[in-house]
């Protein structure tokens, strides 16, 4: 059995969340921004699961499943957009300096 409090878990989740947030803010490449958003989503899911585990209930895990769904849909659409950008705005620079 592990002796870890909820606070520890939540702090870990926050650290990861803010790492992702910094990524969104400092990167200019849309691909990196997308990945950073994935980190943030993952951290949020982590917090949910920790909270669910705290009470020994399944709800936290279910929330994580929903986040997973959202992330999957978001990634699908986001990547489709990136492909479209790339096709329409073919530049000499292979990576798109968007945003």
């Amino acid at each position: 059995m592990i002796a870890i409090s909820l606070n520890t878990g939540l702090i870990i989740a926050s650290i990861m969340f803010f790492t992702g947030l910094i990524g969104v803010m400092i990167r200019k490449n849309i691909m990196f921004m997308l990945i950073s958003i994935e980190i943030m989503l993952n951290a949020a899911g982590l917090a949910f699961v920790f909270a669910g585990a705290q009470h020994g209930q399944a709800d936290g895990q279910i929330m994580f499943l929903f986040i997973l769904t959202t992330a999957a849909a978001e990634v699908a659409v986001g990547l489709a957009l990136i492909i479209q950008f790339y096709q329409n705005l073919k530049r000499s620079i292979p990576m798109l300096p968007i945003i």
Partner: peptide, 28 residues
């Protein structure tokens, strides 16, 4: 980064200042 760091510290403070308990440990 500074902004995020401050935010992190504040949220950490909020988390720590709240009540806490060890994990239930039950396998779901």
């Amino acid at each position: 980064s500074l902004l995020s760091l401050i935010l992190l510290l504040e949220i950490g403070y909020l988390i720590v200042s709240g009540q806490t308990a060890p994990f239930n440990g039950r396998q779901i």
